[in-house]
Design a protein around this nucleic acid. Structure first.
Lengths: 223, 223
DNA sequence: GACGAATTAGACAAGGATGTCTAAAAAAAT
DNA sequence: ATTTTTTTAGACATCCTTGTCTAATTCGTC
């Protein structure tokens, strides 16, 4: 009787666990918590209802597991992308555009990111603790990490930034500017549109924070 | 039998209709469509369940009515605020900050705006047509109107803008940058925090789009 | 092949929600 | 004051969903 509860769910039934989580994420996201039907989740996962109950005891617990899992995955992705930030840019604008594009495609615009945002917004109040964790460990850390990168660029003379945290937040905001609306409903942007959005975001960001020859950036901004 | 179906719901039962819509909005927003309980809506509206069914036949129809009503109110508010845009600014930055602050407080940050965003995001896929209408008549028109105002400021020499539509969208995005996250769950910002957010947004916007050289001489605005 | 664990299909009770109906009460209009 | 309309409270049938239980079956492992 080797029931180490936290470690080995012994066999290839990890695959089932995974498919349950995935299906549950999809259904919860589509229908909301109350509207999600466990039979449907089971069917969509290719699993019997009883198995769902065996793996995660409760609808509530299942939702919890889903949120935890997606959050974790999304965070991992985001930090992986953040590690590709151009610390030593060759062409600052082009490198930032490429970075922004990577970030959008992998973190904001992807199915997981959208599901997570939607679930958190819709049901966040029901799980304030989970929500708080996400906010602290997710966006908070990410923005702070991005701020560090921006500060380094500024210190190296590429950017002119007062407060890196604000700059980071605004970088994200500009990036999202064109994606939020279409992302709400199914409408997906073409590769070209996404790239254009990133270009526009970075261009404005650099107009505001870049030390560029094309714009007189000598003027110190009065505090 | 004067039942002009569109005009006069004859008497002070318009008040009941209104309170039903309001309560329904609150409950739908809190619990989602599937989780919303008609008994609860009725109770919260101070009305019997039957009355709810009398006014709007169906849970679905009720939801529809709620969405339509909130959309309409939110749009009206937004356009009213837009009419206070500083077309002839005295102090450009201060005037833009004041405008941004008005917009945030009345359109984004207020209860109605938040409810609307949440409902649309959560249930938008169930009502693609309503959703599309909102997108076209709401944000689309608002951004376009703001773009016109910005273009006028640019033409008058206050701003340096290539594409007013993009500038408008980015103005909104910068404005939302700091509000979106806390707005998700109940956390409310203090007056001072909101003002600071607006100041930061406008400062960056002006760093990107402001004329660095000097204030323009007074210019007559042509209609 | 045989054993034990996991999975399955289906039945099942309990509870909750929707939407209808009815008769009584309240409000509005004449 | 009377008449008409709206509102109310509650009962009600129907359906759906959750979560449990059981017996049969599959799967992986020895």
């Amino acid at each position: 009787m080797h029931n180490y509860p936290d470690i080995l769910p012994p066999r290839g039934h990890a695959a089932k666990r995974q498919s349950i989580i995935d299906a549950a994420a999809a259904v919860f996201c589509r229908e909301g918590f109350a509207g999600a039907n466990i039979d449907l989740i089971a069917a969509e996962a290719g699993v019997s209802r009883q198995t769902v109950y065996n793996h995660h005891g409760d609808k509530d617990k299942l939702f919890n597991a889903v949120l935890r899992e997606i959050t974790e995955r999304a965070n991992a992705r985001a930090f992986a992308i953040l590690d590709t930030f151009p610390d030593q840019p060759v062409d600052l604008e082009a490198d930032l555009v490429a970075f922004a594009l990577r970030f959008n495609k992998n973190c904001i615009w992807c199915r997981e990111g959208k599901s997570l945002r939607k679930l958190l917004l819709a049901e966040g109040e029901r799980y304030p603790e989970l929500f708080e964790v996400w906010r602290r460990e997710g966006p908070g850390k990410i923005e702070s990490a991005l701020a560090s990168r921006l500060a380094r660029l500024a210190h190296a003379g590429y950017l002119d930034i007062d407060d890196p945290d604000i700059a980071a937040r605004q970088f994200m905001a500009l990036n999202n500017a064109e994606l939020h609306l279409p992302s709400m409903f199914g409408k997906s942007l073409s590769e070209e549109e996404t790239a254009a959005a990133a270009r526009r975001a970075v261009r404005t960001f650099l107009r505001a924070f870049g030390r560029r020859v094309s714009r007189p950036a000598e003027l110190p901004q009065e505090a």
